[in-house]
């Protein structure tokens, strides 16, 4: 269920691989959206819609050397999806969404 401000959802992120792959840091992060200020929640929703996150067809996550693979998950307004995305992320809208969720989960994350 969501409240009037669109809360009740969450943002999830898992990062795998990379030149500096550190197993000790590879864990799932999850941030309840209610922890975010309203403008940040709105921005996240806007980015998800711009990237067509809940509707886009998944592309095979082919591993490139030292590139990371992100498992990004969002639950917003009753919509929920987890998607695996590998670098390089050619779609600018999806790249912006991944960057934002990575930042949010890093700054405010917990499990």
């Amino acid at each position: 269920m969501t409240d009037e401000a669109g809360c009740g959802g969450e943002a999830r992120m898992r990062v795998d691989g990379g030149f500096a792959h550190l197993p000790g840091r590879a864990s799932d992060s999850c941030v309840p959206l209610e922890r975010l200020p309203g403008d940040e929640r709105a921005e996240l929703t806007r980015l998800a819609d711009a990237a067509g996150f809940f509707d886009c067809a998944p592309e095979p996550a082919v591993a490139r050397p030292d590139a990371r693979t992100y498992t990004i998950g969002l639950t917003i307004d009753g919509r929920s999806r987890d998607l695996q995305v590998a670098e390089p992320i050619r779609d600018p809208a999806l790249a912006a969404l991944v960057s934002t969720v990575r930042r949010i989960t890093r700054e405010r994350g917990g499990v």
Binding site: G18, R64, A67, E87, P88, R103
Partner: peptide, 15 residues
Amino acid sequence: DQDYDNAFWDGTQMV
């Protein structure tokens, strides 16, 4: 990107 702890080869360039 920001706070980006990585470098990779994307098939055409280094990032």
